[in-house]
Design a binder for these strands. Structure first.
Lengths: 395, 395
DNA sequence: CCTATTTGTTTGGCCCTTGACTAATCGCGG
DNA sequence: CCGCGATTAGTCAAGGGCCAAACAAATAGG
């Protein structure tokens, strides 16, 4: 019971080559052959057809051979940057981010608009659609060259049904995101959960490049995450895999809206951290303020960040013990606190880790910052669109 | 950098067919073609070569066509049971189990010997080797027809290095199991961790048949487990993935040898349960006694099992929330307590579950009982041996 | 009996690999 | 500086694996 679509071997090979080029940028034909598992001669043929279709260009630059020392240098080939662009939309905790990137995954435009906390998705679609149109204008891109729009939605996402999962009460639950935004933009739209896309982006272009076993942890308005094992993103049955916000880190802790006590989300997460500082500093505080004040030595801010780090670290330790990843990548707005957060986090994680897991585990800050999820959305579009692109060119 | 071994497409196709037949038993050619993704004509050819090599036999029995109603019935083909047998050895908490099964995965012999708790692996190898030789004699199997021996070792296993992982202090840590037993038996030996093999067996022949997202939880001397997601077993970097014995279920609980407080293993697990009953019942109690006494209404025994179930259920809830599996399978000796354990377990799991995860999660007792790990060892041998078998026959 | 449906087999043709060959570079010794 | 072996990249011809399409066989249902 495989995929019922009958795609020829040739098409799948072309697809594999394009995907590889997308991930690695420029490569020689021999390099491609090694990575994709085809022979050099076959790859040469495939590249020839791709060049004929203007999907791939050959550069003058020569690449040093694989052996390092001697050997004929390879001719660099890459995806033709002019062959298309993809748009990433990230509906965040209180922003919408939009980026446009070309098929070589170079970001050309990045825009952002602030939204009120707890905004209504319906209104946000309108804002996002305007933002996207503005970005397209600004980039001067012909709409026909846009391969698609990827959307990052907060919280878990049910990929099978194509809507945000309706577990916790959320304004996004059950909203057909792709349909809503697709209708407004008249472009193909794909959607997935923010943490899954963040992990995808960090794996392709960020701190988890080449990792097959890692955990992505997003410390933001809420707390979420994603697990990659055997090089594959775990989704679970409903898209709930990786959702670590309600992992219990202290069974005697405060009540959580989920009905348990001491969920990670009751200790970490933007609103919790800010509320802890509110009695002292009032409610006009931003996270950016807190971080700079902490760097300047403010004890309260330091403590708020360090407490969050400690509890997150406990969760990291537990996840490390049961998943044994090579790395845990910390993303989300709180990650901007750097060592103020990561120091206590690492310490707590080390204390909770078994030697088996802890000895190999590295804990890193994500490399893509606030753009991670939007970049993941772009990556999703580029990955999913390859097939259509090739099919269209096949004529 | 794929696998450097160059195996021809033809070999891989043959392998896929054999693997499928191993999993499903008897099938028609058309059925195989659908499942393995090849065309009917190609499968016919492959089956012809396998029949010529005596690896596959065609039965007189006819199978009803896929459409249900009309259509020519298919000819049933299956692996030739006479083409080989595999041996599974399970080093348990205080037993060694040995089984012999043929390539159609029918168990022909099952033997078991008791060992002292905390036995020395060196001595256990001798016992196991004797047991295996005895089983071979009893089965009247020609040693040349034995494809290999699979060994199940307690605790995590580092597949890359081929030895039990050396995280917690364990008499098994670092022992080259395959070499030790292979030297004594002069047969090819493969080894892996007990929980990984238990999960493999439950997935192939037991309660998790066809599941691509599930958690296996072994409640035995220690507490361990395994995660399957996207149809693949998670191993992590060191084979530590799935090791849930030190998942913290109560941060204020008793100290654990790992240095944390309230690990699952401090509440569940055979020694803990028995020790709780020791003041009242003395130390001559066996788990079997406890279970029968509990069924007869003994409040102490009921409570001991129910307490274990409750704590295990908390862990199940947490794992369900972060992994979102379709099922959690409970194996190990404690699972024999049935509803006495599972009732409280299910209740605690339900209380801790988020709706997103809990609504789809089923919690079941493993179907293979104490043979699970030995059967997994057999499955491993059969799976790994296919390649050699085909290579040898290719001549 | 006839149609619809599915299975198993046969045949021409495409995709891919193997092996050999040429091209291009590095490192070495002279 | 030049020549030469070693090594790698890219291309070309021969052959094998696999598929699609057509066909024969076998059954259910009307």
């Amino acid at each position: 019971m495989r995929t019922p679509v009958r795609e020829s071997r040739a098409d799948r090979s072309r697809l594999a080559v394009v995907r590889l080029l997308r991930e690695r940028g420029t490569m020689s034909r021999a390099d491609i052959a090694r990575h994709v598992g085809l022979s050099r001669s076959t790859v040469s043929g495939i590249i020839a057809t791709l060049v004929a279709d203007d999907l791939v260009v050959e550069l003058e630059a020569k690449l040093t051979p694989a052996g390092g020392g001697a050997g004929r240098p390879g001719a660099a080939v890459m995806l033709n940057p002019a062959s298309g662009e993809a748009i990433g939309v990230d509906f965040g905790y209180r922003h919408v981010h939009v980026i446009i990137a070309n098929v070589a995954h170079a970001v050309r435009i990045a825009k952002s608009v602030r939204l009120p906390v707890g905004y209504d998705p319906g209104a946000a679609f309108d804002v996002a659609a305007d933002l996207v149109r503005g970005a397209i204008d600004e980039a001067g891109t012909d709409p026909s060259r846009i391969l698609g729009v990827g959307v990052s939605v907060p919280g878990p996402f049910d990929t099978r049904r194509g809507v945000p999962s309706s577990g916790m009460p959320s304004p996004w639950a059950g909203i057909p995101v792709a349909v809503e935004l697709g209708g407004r933009l008249n472009l193909p739209v794909l959607a997935d959960g923010d943490t899954k896309l963040g992990a995808l982006a960090e794996r392709r272009w960020g701190a988890a490049r080449g990792y097959d076993e890692f955990v992505y942890m997003k410390l933001h308005g809420g707390v979420g995450g994603a697990f990659v094992s055997n090089g594959q993103l775990a989704r679970g049955v409903n898209g709930g895999a990786g959702e670590i916000g309600h992992l219990v880190v202290d069974a005697t802790g405060p009540l959580c809206r989920c009905g348990n006590r001491g969920c990670l989300e009751t200790f970490v997460g933007l609103p919790v951290v800010m509320r802890a500082l509110e009695p002292t500093y009032g409610d006009r505080l931003t996270l950016r303020n807190v971080i700079t004040m902490a760097w300047q030595g403010d004890r309260g801010c330091i403590r708020a960040l360090s407490d969050a780090g400690t509890m997150a670290g406990r969760a990291v330790g537990m996840l490390g013990n049961i998943l044994n990843p090579q790395s845990v990548i910390i993303g989300g707005a709180l990650a901007a606190a750097g060592e103020l957060l990561m120091g206590p986090l690492r310490e707590a994680a080390a204390a909770a880790s078994l030697p088996l897991a802890g000895d190999v585990l590295t804990i890193q800050v994500g490399a893509l910052g606030p753009q991670a999820c939007a970049l993941g959305a772009v990556a999703m579009v580029l990955g999913e669109t390859d097939e259509k692109l090739l099919a269209a060119m096949g004529s």
